[in-house]
Computed example of a mutant assay.
Amino acid sequence: MPEDAGPGPTEWTRPDEVGVGPWQGEWPDDDRYDPELLAHGDRRNVVDPYRYWRREAIVSDVDRRRHPFHVAIENFQHDHNIGTVVRTANAFAAAAVHIVGRRRWNRRGAMVTDRYQHLHHHPDVDGLAAFAREHELTVVAVDNTHGAERIETARLPRRCVLLFGQEGPGLSAAAREIAELSVAIAQFGSTRSINAGVAAGIVMHTWVSQHADLGRAW
């Protein structure tokens, strides 16, 4: 990599060009690097420290940085927010994302980040509940229902599953039943609910604010 392109959080090293071109100079003697990317450049949506790395090497390195929270979202109506949730979970290094309901989902919003994120599928809420019990994870329901604690003042468990419902109907009754804690995002306008993808980002960032080592952030 050129000397003036030091590691950073951005996707690009030039404002007019996404990614980086072919490697300049002698190639690194490191199995993490992909010869194709070294030869032709790397235009992927990855942070600069992972430029030219193989996908498997990136996943392995992110695995060392992952946090002990999981994200789950119900998918009984092909919710288009799932891609956004996956992309945000990747940005915050969630342990995994769980799709509950239909297996197929719209990956466009994920912007290819699903290739670097562990994904699990559960045909129903009972499957998610079993996973949570097996891995000693507290299920936290996120929905603006009566009795939910304010996310702004609640203390989220360190090891947990943040469970989100679909756009419109919110969490199913079955999902609310398996939750040990319910939280809601404070709202002040006329709308009844926040977009599911936006809500997921707010709650994940709340977990990061409470538990993450910010010194390890890019």
Rank of each mutant, 00 (worst) to 15 (best):
W218P: 10
I185N: 00
V142E: 03
G21S: 12
W207Q: 03
L181Y: 06
E152H: 15
Q187D: 09
Y116D: 05
V112A: 04
I194R: 06
E26R: 15
A175K: 00
D114W: 04
F76H: 11
V71A: 08
N106F: 08
R102W: 10
F188I: 14
N195P: 14
R14Y: 12
A93H: 12
A96T: 13
R108M: 08
V139P: 04
D124C: 09
G83S: 04
F76E: 09
H211F: 08
T84M: 06
L128R: 05
W105T: 10
N195D: 14
R107K: 08
Q117H: 01
T88C: 10
L37H: 08
W207F: 07
H70G: 01
I194L: 14
F76V: 07
R64W: 00
D31F: 10
T153D: 14
A217C: 07
E56H: 09
V20N: 00
A95Q: 05
S172G: 13
E149H: 10
V100W: 00
P123D: 15
M204E: 01
I99F: 06
D34I: 12
P28T: 10
G101H: 03
F164W: 06
R155D: 12
A173S: 13
P157Y: 00
C160F: 07
S60R: 11
I194S: 08
R115Y: 04
D29F: 01
D213F: 02
D29W: 05
A179Q: 02
Y52G: 10
D16L: 04
V139D: 02
A130H: 04
W218I: 08
A89D: 01
E17W: 06
A39N: 14
Y50C: 13
G109W: 00
E26L: 14
I73V: 15
Q117Y: 00
E11Y: 09
N90A: 04
A57F: 09
T10L: 10
F131P: 01
S209W: 07
I185K: 00
T138Q: 14
M1E: 13
P123F: 11
T10C: 06
W105H: 09
A141L: 02
Q77T: 07
Q187R: 15
Q77A: 04
R104A: 11
L128A: 07
R51H: 09
H146S: 14
N90R: 05
E167L: 15
R103Y: 13
W23C: 06
G168I: 09
H121M: 11
L119C: 02
R158C: 03
E11K: 09
